[in-house]
Protein backbone atom coordinates (compact mmCIF):
# COMPACT_ATOMS: atom_id res chain seq x y z
CA UNK A 1 0.00 0.00 0.00
CA UNK A 2 1.33 3.43 -0.87
CA UNK A 3 1.93 5.67 2.13
CA UNK A 4 -0.48 8.57 2.54
CA UNK A 5 0.56 11.86 0.95
CA UNK A 6 0.09 13.68 4.24
CA UNK A 7 0.30 12.11 7.63
CA UNK A 8 -0.20 14.23 10.73
CA UNK A 9 0.56 12.63 14.09
CA UNK A 10 -0.41 14.09 17.47
CA UNK A 11 0.07 17.63 16.22
CA UNK A 12 -0.01 20.36 18.87
CA UNK A 13 0.18 24.06 17.99
CA UNK A 14 0.91 26.29 20.95
CA UNK A 15 0.70 30.05 21.40
CA UNK A 16 2.57 31.22 24.47
CA UNK A 17 1.30 34.46 25.95
CA UNK A 18 1.49 36.34 29.21
CA UNK A 19 -1.63 34.63 30.48
CA UNK A 20 -0.29 31.15 29.74
CA UNK A 21 0.00 28.80 26.81
CA UNK A 22 -3.04 28.24 24.63
CA UNK A 23 -3.26 25.29 22.24
CA UNK A 24 -5.47 26.16 19.26
CA UNK A 25 -4.57 22.77 17.76
CA UNK A 26 -4.37 20.07 20.38
CA UNK A 27 -3.21 16.58 19.59
CA UNK A 28 -4.75 15.85 16.23
CA UNK A 29 -3.85 12.98 13.89
CA UNK A 30 -5.05 12.30 10.37
CA UNK A 31 -3.90 11.01 6.98
CA UNK A 32 -4.76 12.12 3.47
CA UNK A 33 -4.22 9.61 0.67
CA UNK A 34 -3.31 10.38 -2.92
CA UNK A 35 -6.28 11.85 -4.79
CA UNK A 36 -8.32 12.08 -1.62
CA UNK A 37 -10.14 15.17 -0.43
CA UNK A 38 -10.31 15.53 3.33
CA UNK A 39 -12.78 18.11 4.51
CA UNK A 40 -12.01 19.86 7.80
CA UNK A 41 -15.03 21.53 9.39
CA UNK A 42 -15.64 23.35 12.61
CA UNK A 43 -16.84 26.71 13.80
CA UNK A 44 -14.67 29.81 13.86
CA UNK A 45 -11.76 29.39 16.24
CA UNK A 46 -11.92 25.58 16.23
CA UNK A 47 -8.35 25.51 14.90
CA UNK A 48 -9.03 24.34 11.37
CA UNK A 49 -7.05 27.08 9.59
CA UNK A 50 -4.30 26.83 12.19
CA UNK A 51 -4.03 23.10 11.45
CA UNK A 52 -3.59 23.89 7.74
CA UNK A 53 -1.03 26.62 8.35
CA UNK A 54 0.95 24.31 10.64
CA UNK A 55 1.27 21.73 7.86
CA UNK A 56 2.66 24.23 5.36
CA UNK A 57 4.86 25.91 7.97
CA UNK A 58 3.21 29.31 7.84
CA UNK A 59 2.28 29.81 11.48
CA UNK A 60 2.58 33.43 12.55
CA UNK A 61 4.81 33.88 15.53
CA UNK A 62 4.48 33.27 18.42
CA UNK A 63 2.34 30.30 17.32
CA UNK A 64 4.48 27.23 16.72
CA UNK A 65 4.34 23.45 16.51
CA UNK A 66 4.91 22.35 20.10
CA UNK A 67 4.88 18.62 19.51
CA UNK A 68 3.75 15.99 17.07
CA UNK A 69 4.91 15.12 13.57
CA UNK A 70 3.98 16.04 10.01
CA UNK A 71 4.99 13.61 7.27
CA UNK A 72 4.73 14.46 3.59
CA UNK A 73 5.25 11.62 1.11
CA UNK A 74 7.20 9.66 3.70
CA UNK A 75 9.43 12.58 4.71
CA UNK A 76 9.15 14.34 8.02
CA UNK A 77 8.70 18.09 7.40
CA UNK A 78 7.72 19.68 10.71
CA UNK A 79 11.35 19.91 11.85
CA UNK A 80 12.86 21.33 8.64
CA UNK A 81 14.68 24.66 8.48
CA UNK A 82 13.09 27.72 6.87
CA UNK A 83 14.93 27.31 3.57
CA UNK A 84 13.94 23.64 3.15
CA UNK A 85 10.36 24.47 4.07
CA UNK A 86 10.33 27.21 1.47
CA UNK A 87 11.35 24.73 -1.22
CA UNK A 88 8.47 22.49 -0.22
CA UNK A 89 5.90 25.27 -0.25
CA UNK A 90 4.48 25.76 -3.70
CA UNK A 91 6.42 22.77 -5.05
CA UNK A 92 4.96 19.96 -2.92
CA UNK A 93 2.24 21.76 -0.98
CA UNK A 94 0.05 24.32 -2.69
CA UNK A 95 -2.22 26.62 -0.78
CA UNK A 96 -5.43 28.41 -1.75
CA UNK A 97 -6.61 31.22 0.49
CA UNK A 98 -10.02 32.48 1.37
CA UNK A 99 -10.24 35.84 -0.32
CA UNK A 100 -9.21 35.95 -3.99
CA UNK A 101 -9.54 39.75 -3.94
CA UNK A 102 -6.60 40.12 -1.57
CA UNK A 103 -4.57 37.00 -2.40
CA UNK A 104 -3.06 38.39 -5.59
CA UNK A 105 -0.50 41.17 -5.62
CA UNK A 106 -2.39 44.11 -7.16
CA UNK A 107 0.68 45.65 -8.79
CA UNK A 108 2.04 42.63 -10.64
CA UNK A 109 0.64 41.09 -13.81
CA UNK A 110 -0.77 37.65 -13.18
CA UNK A 111 1.58 36.26 -15.83
CA UNK A 112 4.54 37.55 -13.85
CA UNK A 113 3.17 36.07 -10.62
CA UNK A 114 2.73 32.71 -12.38
CA UNK A 115 6.09 32.55 -14.14
CA UNK A 116 7.88 33.72 -11.02
CA UNK A 117 6.36 30.85 -9.05
CA UNK A 118 7.01 28.31 -11.80
CA UNK A 119 10.63 29.29 -12.29
CA UNK A 120 11.22 29.28 -8.56
CA UNK A 121 10.42 25.59 -8.39
CA UNK A 122 11.09 24.13 -11.82
CA UNK A 123 14.21 24.47 -13.98
CA UNK A 124 12.65 26.32 -16.90
CA UNK A 125 13.52 29.12 -19.27
CA UNK A 126 11.33 32.21 -19.36
CA UNK A 127 9.63 30.99 -22.54
CA UNK A 128 8.92 27.52 -21.12
CA UNK A 129 7.55 29.04 -17.93
CA UNK A 130 5.31 31.28 -19.99
CA UNK A 131 3.91 28.32 -21.92
CA UNK A 132 3.28 26.54 -18.69
CA UNK A 133 1.57 29.61 -17.24
CA UNK A 134 -0.75 29.72 -20.25
CA UNK A 135 -1.49 26.02 -19.81
CA UNK A 136 -2.17 26.53 -16.10
CA UNK A 137 -4.65 29.32 -16.82
CA UNK A 138 -6.37 27.27 -19.52
CA UNK A 139 -6.71 24.39 -17.12
CA UNK A 140 -8.59 26.49 -14.61
CA UNK A 141 -10.89 27.76 -17.34
CA UNK A 142 -9.62 31.27 -18.05
CA UNK A 143 -10.54 32.15 -21.63
CA UNK A 144 -7.89 33.70 -23.92
CA UNK A 145 -5.24 32.68 -21.41
CA UNK A 146 -2.26 33.89 -23.44
CA UNK A 147 -3.59 37.45 -23.52
CA UNK A 148 -4.76 37.37 -19.92
CA UNK A 149 -1.16 36.83 -18.78
CA UNK A 150 -0.70 40.57 -19.22
CA UNK A 151 -3.73 41.47 -17.13
CA UNK A 152 -3.59 42.78 -13.59
CA UNK A 153 -5.66 41.14 -10.84
CA UNK A 154 -8.18 44.02 -10.76
CA UNK A 155 -9.15 43.22 -14.33
CA UNK A 156 -10.67 39.88 -13.23
CA UNK A 157 -13.92 39.16 -11.42
CA UNK A 158 -13.86 37.50 -7.99
CA UNK A 159 -14.55 34.02 -9.33
CA UNK A 160 -11.96 34.42 -12.06
CA UNK A 161 -9.42 35.61 -9.54
CA UNK A 162 -10.00 32.52 -7.43
CA UNK A 163 -9.34 30.48 -10.58
CA UNK A 164 -6.06 32.38 -11.00
CA UNK A 165 -5.24 31.68 -7.35
CA UNK A 166 -5.88 27.97 -7.92
CA UNK A 167 -3.70 28.07 -11.05
CA UNK A 168 -0.95 29.67 -8.95
CA UNK A 169 -1.29 27.08 -6.19
CA UNK A 170 -1.17 24.19 -8.66
CA UNK A 171 1.32 25.52 -11.24
CA UNK A 172 4.26 23.51 -9.86
CA UNK A 173 2.10 20.38 -9.51
CA UNK A 174 2.21 19.88 -5.76
CA UNK A 175 1.10 16.56 -4.33
CA UNK A 176 -0.96 18.24 -1.60
CA UNK A 177 -3.21 21.28 -1.74
CA UNK A 178 -4.45 23.04 1.37
CA UNK A 179 -7.56 25.03 0.52
CA UNK A 180 -8.42 27.37 3.38
CA UNK A 181 -12.06 28.40 2.96
CA UNK A 182 -11.65 28.67 -0.81
CA UNK A 183 -15.28 29.56 -1.47
CA UNK A 184 -16.27 31.59 1.57
CA UNK A 185 -15.69 34.97 -0.09
CA UNK A 186 -17.41 34.05 -3.34
CA UNK A 187 -20.97 34.34 -4.65
CA UNK A 188 -23.03 31.21 -4.11
CA UNK A 189 -23.34 30.67 -7.85
CA UNK A 190 -19.56 30.81 -8.27
CA UNK A 191 -18.85 28.61 -5.23
CA UNK A 192 -20.10 25.45 -6.94
CA UNK A 193 -17.96 26.15 -10.01
CA UNK A 194 -14.82 26.65 -7.95
CA UNK A 195 -15.44 23.49 -5.91
CA UNK A 196 -16.09 21.49 -9.08
CA UNK A 197 -12.89 22.89 -10.60
CA UNK A 198 -10.79 22.07 -7.55
CA UNK A 199 -12.28 18.59 -7.42
CA UNK A 200 -11.65 17.88 -11.11
CA UNK A 201 -8.05 19.16 -11.09
CA UNK A 202 -7.17 17.10 -8.04
CA UNK A 203 -8.85 13.95 -9.36
CA UNK A 204 -6.99 14.30 -12.68
CA UNK A 205 -3.61 14.72 -11.05
CA UNK A 206 -4.07 12.57 -7.98
CA UNK A 207 -3.46 15.56 -5.73
CA UNK A 208 -4.42 15.16 -2.09
CA UNK A 209 -6.55 18.02 -0.76
CA UNK A 210 -7.10 19.36 2.72
CA UNK A 211 -10.29 21.38 2.33
CA UNK A 212 -10.81 23.66 5.31
CA UNK A 213 -14.28 25.19 5.52
CA UNK A 214 -17.22 25.78 7.80
CA UNK A 215 -19.66 25.10 4.99
CA UNK A 216 -21.09 21.59 5.32
CA UNK A 217 -22.60 21.95 1.85
CA UNK A 218 -19.13 22.30 0.35
CA UNK A 219 -17.96 19.29 2.34
CA UNK A 220 -20.89 17.16 1.23
CA UNK A 221 -20.24 18.18 -2.35
CA UNK A 222 -16.50 17.66 -2.52
CA UNK A 223 -14.96 15.68 0.31
CA UNK A 224 -14.28 11.95 0.56
CA UNK A 225 -13.74 12.01 4.28
CA UNK A 226 -14.47 14.67 6.83
CA UNK A 227 -12.77 15.70 10.06
CA UNK A 228 -14.91 17.62 12.54
CA UNK A 229 -12.86 19.89 14.80
CA UNK A 230 -13.96 21.32 18.11
CA UNK A 231 -11.82 23.54 20.36
CA UNK A 232 -8.57 22.43 18.73
CA UNK A 233 -9.34 18.71 18.84
CA UNK A 234 -10.73 16.23 16.39
CA UNK A 235 -14.24 15.31 17.43
CA UNK A 236 -15.01 12.93 14.63
CA UNK A 237 -13.24 11.64 11.54
CA UNK A 238 -14.82 9.39 8.95
CA UNK A 239 -16.25 8.93 5.47
CA UNK A 240 -18.32 11.96 4.54
CA UNK A 241 -21.62 10.07 4.02
CA UNK A 242 -21.40 8.26 7.35
CA UNK A 243 -20.52 11.40 9.30
CA UNK A 244 -23.35 13.36 7.72
CA UNK A 245 -25.99 10.65 7.92
CA UNK A 246 -24.99 8.88 11.13
CA UNK A 247 -22.82 11.22 13.19
CA UNK A 248 -21.45 9.58 16.32
CA UNK A 249 -19.97 12.47 18.22
CA UNK A 250 -22.71 14.57 19.86
CA UNK A 251 -21.06 17.74 18.53
CA UNK A 252 -21.04 16.40 14.97
CA UNK A 253 -24.64 15.38 15.49
CA UNK A 254 -25.51 18.89 16.66
CA UNK A 255 -23.68 20.36 13.64
CA UNK A 256 -25.66 18.18 11.23
CA UNK A 257 -28.89 18.99 13.04
CA UNK A 258 -28.21 22.69 12.58
CA UNK A 259 -27.91 22.30 8.82
CA UNK A 260 -30.96 23.40 6.83
CA UNK A 261 -32.14 21.14 4.03
CA UNK A 262 -34.63 21.55 1.23
CA UNK A 263 -36.55 18.40 2.18
CA UNK A 264 -40.30 18.78 2.54
CA UNK A 265 -41.61 18.83 6.09
CA UNK A 266 -38.35 20.22 7.44
CA UNK A 267 -38.32 20.15 11.22
CA UNK A 268 -37.07 23.11 13.20
CA UNK A 269 -33.28 23.37 13.10
CA UNK A 270 -31.68 22.22 16.30
CA UNK A 271 -29.16 24.38 18.03
CA UNK A 272 -26.31 23.55 20.35
CA UNK A 273 -26.68 25.50 23.59
CA UNK A 274 -23.77 27.65 24.71
CA UNK A 275 -20.62 28.63 22.81
CA UNK A 276 -17.25 27.05 22.10
CA UNK A 277 -14.83 27.63 24.98
CA UNK A 278 -12.02 30.11 24.43
CA UNK A 279 -8.63 28.46 23.84
CA UNK A 280 -7.29 29.68 27.20
CA UNK A 281 -10.27 28.29 29.03
CA UNK A 282 -10.91 24.76 27.84
CA UNK A 283 -12.69 22.60 30.41
CA UNK A 284 -10.99 19.49 31.76
CA UNK A 285 -12.12 16.15 30.46
CA UNK A 286 -14.00 16.45 27.19
CA UNK A 287 -13.95 20.00 25.80
CA UNK A 288 -17.54 19.61 24.63
CA UNK A 289 -18.89 18.26 27.94
CA UNK A 290 -20.47 21.54 29.21
CA UNK A 291 -22.65 21.72 26.10
CA UNK A 292 -23.19 18.00 25.55
CA UNK A 293 -26.65 16.53 26.14
CA UNK A 294 -25.09 13.10 26.78
CA UNK A 295 -22.35 14.19 29.13
CA UNK A 296 -21.79 12.14 32.27
CA UNK A 297 -19.42 12.73 35.18
CA UNK A 298 -16.71 10.75 33.42
CA UNK A 299 -16.77 13.26 30.53
CA UNK A 300 -15.98 16.16 32.86
CA UNK A 301 -12.97 14.41 34.38
CA UNK A 302 -11.29 12.18 31.81
CA UNK A 303 -10.37 13.38 28.32
CA UNK A 304 -12.09 11.16 25.74
CA UNK A 305 -10.10 8.57 23.79
CA UNK A 306 -7.98 10.14 21.08
CA UNK A 307 -8.94 9.38 17.52
CA UNK A 308 -6.68 6.89 15.83
CA UNK A 309 -6.06 4.70 18.87
CA UNK A 310 -8.91 2.47 17.88
CA UNK A 311 -9.29 1.91 14.14
CA UNK A 312 -13.01 1.40 14.54
CA UNK A 313 -13.49 4.47 16.72
CA UNK A 314 -14.68 7.32 14.59
CA UNK A 315 -15.59 9.74 17.35
CA UNK A 316 -13.53 11.06 20.26
CA UNK A 317 -16.31 10.43 22.75
CA UNK A 318 -16.95 8.25 25.78
CA UNK A 319 -20.53 7.66 24.77
CA UNK A 320 -20.70 7.79 20.97
CA UNK A 321 -24.14 7.82 19.49
CA UNK A 322 -25.41 4.57 18.07
CA UNK A 323 -27.46 4.51 14.93
CA UNK A 324 -29.52 1.41 14.29
CA UNK A 325 -28.63 0.01 10.90
Amino acid sequence: MTPPVLSVRNLVVAIPSRAGVSRPVNNISYDIAQGEILGVVGESGAGKSMAGNAVIGLLDRPAHIASGEVWLNGRRIDNLGPEELRRIRGRQIGMVFQDPLTSLNPLLRIGDQLTETIREHLPMTAAQARDRAVAALEEVGIPAAAERLNSYPHEFSGGMRQRVVIALALCAEPSLVIADEPTTALDVSVQAQIIALLKRLCRDRGTAVMLVTHDMGVIAEAADRVAVMYAGRLAELGPVRSVINTPRHPYADGLMGAMPSLAVGQRRLRQIPGAMPRPMNIPSGCAFSPRCPRAADKCRIDPPPTLGDDPKGRAACWFPMEHPA
Binding site: R86, M95, T102, S103, L104, P106, T117, E120, V165, A169
Partner: peptide, 26 residues
Protein backbone atom coordinates in the same frame (compact mmCIF):
# COMPACT_ATOMS: atom_id res chain seq x y z
CA UNK B 1 0.56 41.72 6.79
CA UNK B 2 -1.41 41.53 3.55
CA UNK B 3 -2.85 38.30 2.16
CA UNK B 4 -0.91 38.49 -1.07
CA UNK B 5 2.35 38.45 0.87
CA UNK B 6 1.12 35.38 2.74
CA UNK B 7 0.14 33.79 -0.54
CA UNK B 8 3.54 34.61 -2.01
CA UNK B 9 5.11 32.86 1.01
CA UNK B 10 2.78 29.89 0.54
CA UNK B 11 4.03 29.60 -3.04
CA UNK B 12 7.57 29.21 -1.76
CA UNK B 13 9.00 32.41 -3.19
CA UNK B 14 12.31 33.61 -1.81
CA UNK B 15 12.34 36.22 0.94
CA UNK B 16 14.30 38.59 -1.26
CA UNK B 17 11.65 38.47 -3.96
CA UNK B 18 8.82 38.79 -1.42
CA UNK B 19 10.37 41.75 0.34
CA UNK B 20 11.69 43.75 -2.57
CA UNK B 21 9.45 42.70 -5.48
CA UNK B 22 6.10 42.06 -3.86
CA UNK B 23 6.18 44.20 -0.73
CA UNK B 24 8.35 47.21 -1.55
CA UNK B 25 6.47 48.01 -4.74
CA UNK B 26 3.23 48.18 -2.80
Amino acid sequence: RQDYIRFARARGLRDRSINFRHALKN
